[in-house]
């Protein structure tokens, strides 16, 4: 569905060249749900804008939905759907009017576009809002309208730029329910950008982590967490001698050297599978006559993956202005 090679984009900002995307290679198969994850300014949206023909790349090529983004942008546009970061409906326009216009933009005749608009209004539970101005809708309703506009021509490939940013948790869940259902029904390939870890983790079958305009990791969420961050077991001991002995014991079952905490009383060890390892470690400590005061097992998040890759936390680098 998507094949990109060496995609680059640089901008001139006040005579300085900013390299927003520094060479991205990408292959997405039909039917995948892929999340592009990274902090603000990582080049996610710029990449997406190149793939959707909104921005010509500085260099590199990409074939999207079977067409070259530079040589054949109109065909690419015909075959993809795009839901941008901002609201897609014009402020002064009525909900249904915008959907009919959108249908006509894709070459439907006016009667066809009207029929399709009514269909999609129903599909996204917007029928009762058809005659309202888009500027009178709530955030969640506007987002549903954005999805309706992106799906009017039933694309096989849908791009979503930060689909749930700025929504309350309830609306976010609602939007996702709609997206996933439509994907199921129409066998769509979804490509989305997000800076929400949970979203990438829970929804995407494949996570591509980007930072500073480059892909730094690519795989299923589980795989990335297992390979790059891993499970950990932490035990708390009574004193420094005990923790030194505990570290020796832990080294036997660990997949990496155990770390002793700054206070000298905790031992943290990376293991293949935390729940099993914890029972095993506690038994081994018991046998070695070491008393563990507390034990904790932690499974990694995608943030740990990002931390392991870049030395920064995605949450920290996500503060406003970063």
């Amino acid at each position: 569905m998507i094949h990109a090679r060496g995609l680059k984009k640089s901008f001139k900002v006040k005579r300085e060249t900013v390299e927003a995307v520094r060479g991205i290679d990408l292959d997405v198969d039909p039917g995948q749900l892929v999340a592009f994850l990274g902090p603000n300014g990582a080049g996610k949206s710029t990449s997406l804008r190149m793939l959707t023909t909104l921005l010509p790349p500085t260099s590199g090529t990409a074939v999207v939905a079977g067409y070259d983004i530079v040589k054949d942008p109109v065909e690419v546009r015909r075959h993809i759907g795009y839901i941008g970061q901002k609201n897609s409906a014009g402020e002064n326009f009525r909900v249904r009017d915008e959907l009919v216009t959108q249908g006509c933009c894709y070459g439907l005749t006016r009667p066809e576009a009207r029929r399709r608009a009514d269909e999609i209004l129903d599909l996204l539970s917007l029928t009762h809002l058809a005659k309202r101005g888009s500027n009178t809708l709530s955030g969640g309703q506007r987002r549903r309208l954005d999805i309706a506009l992106g799906l009017i021509h039933q694309p096989r490939l849908l791009f979503l730029d930060e689909p749930s940013t700025g929504l309350d948790p309830h609306s976010r869940a609602d939007i996702w329910a709609h997206i996933l259902r439509l994907r199921e029904e129409h066998d769509m390939t979804l490509f989305l950008t997000t800076h929400y870890l949970e979203e990438a983790d829970n929804m995407a079958e494949r996570v591509i982590v980007v930072d500073h305009g480059r892909v730094i990791a690519d795989g299923t969420g589980e795989q990335l967490k297992k390979d790059l961050a891993g499970d950990h077991v932490t035990v708390t001991l009574r004193d420094h001698t005990e923790s030194a002995r505990a570290a020796e014991v832990a080294a036997r079952i660990a997949s990496a050297a155990p770390e002793i905490g700054a206070d000298g009383l905790t031992v943290r060890v990376r293991v293949p599978q935390a729940d099993i390892a914890m029972a095993e470690l506690l038994r081994a400590l018991e046998n070695a006559d070491v008393k563990a005061l507390a034990a904790e097992s932690t499974r990694p998040s995608l943030d740990d993956v990002f931390l392991a890759l870049t030395g920064r936390s995605l949450r920290e680098s996500d503060t406003p202005g970063a």
Partner: peptide, 17 residues
């Protein structure tokens, strides 16, 4: 300009229009 600042122009630019 209003439509460029909002997202409606962008949405139309991704259509084959």
């Amino acid at each position: 300009l209003m439509e460029l600042v909002g997202g409606s122009m962008e949405r139309m630019l991704v259509t084959p229009m």
